[in-house]
Design a protein around this nucleic acid. Structure first.
Lengths: 349, 349
DNA sequence: CCTAAATGTTTACGCGCGTAAATAATTAGT
DNA sequence: ACTAATTATTTACGCGCGTAAACATTTAGG
């Protein structure tokens, strides 16, 4: 069908033949592929020369069949088309490759059932470890816990208590506390806009952070909860925001959204209602988000938010995972890392 | 280290043991796993019962070692964190699974070198086929062509002439023609804003569509090209837009951007310059995009654009690939499919 | 109820590689 | 230069499964 053979040299089909072509025995060649430095320099040179002539590559399936663990790391996120996770994955990928592992990408697409299938697929892949951002509230908690028993897993972004070898994410309560402090000082304390049933557990922490910091200032928390299920957060923020604005739900003229995607939808709702958003004296409302979503720089007005430290979270996640993969020992206390967010002051609040 | 054994039943380690436990021979069980309908119903029942008791799963590596082609389909995109590709991948994934294949995701992250590494990885994975959205101009054209010789590949989104088994994408010239027609009728003909060196080949087609349709109306094309390299299109649109606006580059007060991401950045530049964007009589400028990017509904004002038919493109891509994978025959003429875009009239133009 | 055809099952072998143990070659110390 | 310690290479076996060919069973037709 398709032309394959270059017919320059007899095609090498396996390591045996390749070893023969390099004038060595197969196990020596095998050793080379596992670690080029484990063979004598002269031997290494022989192989590398042969490699150029024959462009042979070991059969990964045959390799992995005999390994208890493969040099693979699974990366699982709830939604790949969410630029936040997209960025996250890109960072994680890079770091895995740098450490000599092949990342394998999966997206649960907001479905616990699909998340479960991914677990099954990963189990049979025998990965060295898995970096998992679970769906959260929607996850089948037992399935996640069971999976973490089978495969060394580091959770990131959204936490599930006592599951996995470690957790790396943000200090969500701090996010909200920081933002409330800023909004209070720069004008008036905010109302909190969030989903009634958020898909992501971080929202709970953020709500708690909001309530606490409002109380610390002797202020009455004002929480506006909107309906909606799933991960179409912009839509939910838009629809819910529209309804909330129409019913005059907000006492405060400053609204802190539980996350940037909600805020992006809410901004659209504000515009729809003809409200002027921003810092200017003639503005009707201030809006802030949390996450520093890649698009928050391009909203109108540009979204004031709290920046997640993408790089720190991804670096730490990979670091912690590889550490515990190498040491093979389970530490008694699960090491959790929470990074602080940075206030990003833009035009919207 | 970690507790694994449930100790409910002796752990099954391979198909041999599982066959024994089901009271059958291994090859029969093997046949079942390849096609559950290929064994007698009574036999099938036996296995399915045993499956519940022992939750055994065949070793994928051992399976794939012996197959010439694996039941895998590679999906490669230039940028996974671009929501457009994210959505695309989600669609493609679903359709592959529905057809009984396991999709494997890769992102070139805008680097030809990385794209090349992905090709190598895919080659050794022996996938049944690959769905590839190449980097485009930045791709190593020879590497792409060579890869398509080795593995049955369907290109999508961005075309490379005569490479791969088929191409599925949009009729980019039609996009621009349609939009120019609308903008002309609803006010005034647009200037085209594009990158001087766009990473994506679609831009060329769009430019040509713009020039042609302007000329068809007896109008003089007005093309404003901005600097910038890579895939940070919003940034490029913003920075370049800022400079273009400052230098009074636009004669027309209607700007058609080469794509939505550029438009999103350009909108931010307009706001920065204090321009009122939109349809209203008192607006300073109209802005339109192309692609119907997931975020274009949430810009301010909401972006008027041309919708890519995500679903049609992804469906057709998978369909064409599976077809040619099954038939094993290479058709003489490469079947290319170009879907038309639909005009989405929103508030920005 | 018998025979031929169809279908299901078993035997036997090979895939491409990892790896322990045995052996050979190299290096270091005297 | 010679022996001991070190490192490199080879021999030999097994991993978990696919699959052809041989064999056994079931089904259909008369």
């Amino acid at each position: 069908m398709r032309c394959r053979q270059m017919a320059r040299t007899p095609k090498i089909r396996n390591m045996e033949q390749f070893a023969e072509a390099s004038g060595l025995s197969r196990p020596t060649v095998s050793k080379f592929f596992n670690d080029p430095n484990s063979v004598r320099p002269s031997t290494r040179k022989k192989i590398e020369e042969a490699l150029e002539r024959f462009d042979y590559r070991p059969n990964i399936y045959a390799i992995n069949q005999n390994r208890r663990l493969t040099k693979t790391i699974g990366i699982v996120v709830p939604y790949l088309s969410d630029p936040f996770f997209g960025e996250m994955v890109r960072n994680l990928e890079q770091k895995c490759v740098a450490a000599g592992y092949s990342p394998s990408l999966f997206s649960s697409n907001g479905s616990a059932e699909h998340e479960g299938k991914i677990f099954d697929a990963l189990r049979s892949m025998k990965p060295s470890g898995v970096l998992l951002a679970p769906l959260g509230r929607l996850s089948n908690q037992d399935a996640v816990a069971a999976f973490c028993q089978d495969v060394p897993t580091v959770l990131f972004d959204s936490n599930i208590k006592d599951v996995g070898m470690a957790f790396v994410g943000s200090d969500n309560a701090q996010f909200t506390t920081l933002m409330v402090e800023y909004l209070y000082r720069s004008g008036e304390p905010p109302a909190l806009l969030e989903m009634k049933t958020p898909p992501n557990p971080n929202s709970r922490k953020r709500r708690q952070g909001y309530i606490n910091s409002m109380k610390d200032h002797g202020l009455e928390p004002e929480i506006v909860q909107i309906d909606g299920e799933g991960w179409a957060l912009e839509d939910i923020g838009y629809e819910g925001g529209l309804r909330a604005l129409a019913s005059g739900a907000f006492k405060s003229r400053t609204v802190l959204c539980s996350n940037d995607r909600l805020a992006i939808g809410f901004l659209a709702a504000c515009h729809e209602k003809g409200l002027k958003v921003g810092l200017a004296p003639d503005a009707d409302i201030r809006v802030a988000g949390q996450d520093d979503h890649p698009f928050s720089r391009f909203t109108y007005p540009q979204l004031t938010t709290i920046a997640q430290d993408y790089d720190a979270i991804s670096s730490r996640s990979v670091e912690v995972l590889l550490e515990s993969v190498k040491s093979e020992t389970t530490t008694e206390v699960r090491p959790d890392t929470f990074f602080e967010g940075k206030l990003i002051m833009r035009k919207s609040a």
